[in-house]
Design a protein around this nucleic acid. Structure first.
Lengths: 144, 144
DNA sequence: CTATTCTTGATTAACTCACTCATGAATTAA
DNA sequence: TTAATTCATGAGTGAGTTAATCAAGAATAG
């Protein structure tokens, strides 16, 4: 039940990019120093977010990264899935990346008690993270 | 955001022990074969649960493990904390095992946006798992 | 052309996960 | 009391993940 440093750094980096959205680009070393993130690790994260279509980038002297999606349309759930994988505690209750559990004796019967509880946990987590946007995140309070 | 095999096995083992609670003890190999759990790994888990005060055990020919707490008083949250550690996605929002985040630039100001969301996530997870007992678990549905 | 900045891919150390093994100690049945 | 059974403890292991770090390349501005 843990959020990786990768996702935490990713969220903090996106926070910086959200604050200047539409106004300017940020260079990785700005983000790194402002948010205390190791610059080379940050790089990997920004590139993953770029590959996923959230960021644009420019090389060279006036280069940097920018958020290209509207901050109100990007949820923390999306970001965490990009950087950490599925939100679900176990594969067999994941909705975006379902995986049948091989060894569970209840696997076939769909009456697995573990699956039942963890399904609620998944829904609770996704219920929060998939409705919490970068806008909410930057303004510090939850969307109704 | 993942539940370890250790916790999953632990919950499935406790399910077996709950079903026979007050009636008999179970030997590790019974639990292992019924729930498809590697026996040596199961051993570790059962011993951890014993050390935590949930189980009793007897050695020798008529030995085995038994649940000593009433199944209605043991929550899945307790079990997972024993086997996997804190439920919270990050240390700085854990209530049972709080840990100050060292590198976060918001650490001192308590206005950290990550902390804010992850606090709700923690509460949602704990809200489910700390109210879901072994009784609920064994009967397959949630306590009101 | 040169300095700057992003891009790519490889490499690393430390750690965790999921076991596995070996040995010892308690209990019971013969 | 001896042997078989079962739990107890601690160490060890291989695969994989996490959190970086490094090196070399490509685009851009001046």
């Amino acid at each position: 039940m843990k959020l990786s440093k990768k996702s935490e750094y990713g969220l903090r980096a996106l926070l910086e990019l959200t604050l200047v959205h539409g106004k300017m680009t940020l260079q990785r070393h700005h983000i790194a120093t402002r948010q205390h993130i190791p610059i080379e690790f940050l790089e990997q994260i920004l590139l993953a977010l770029k590959r996923a279509g959230l960021l644009s980038s420019r090389r060279g002297v006036k280069g940097g990264y920018a958020l290209i999606k509207p901050p109100g349309e990007v949820t923390l759930g999306q970001v965490i899935r990009i950087l950490d994988g599925p939100l679900a505690p176990i594969g067999c209750v994941s909705k975006m990346a379902y995986q049948k559990c091989g060894d569970c004796p209840y696997a076939e019967h769909a009456q697995c008690p573990v699956q039942h509880v963890m399904g609620s946990v998944r829904d609770a987590i996704a219920g929060i993270l998939d409705h919490y946007t970068l806008d909410d995140f930057a303004s510090g309070h939850r969307k109704g």
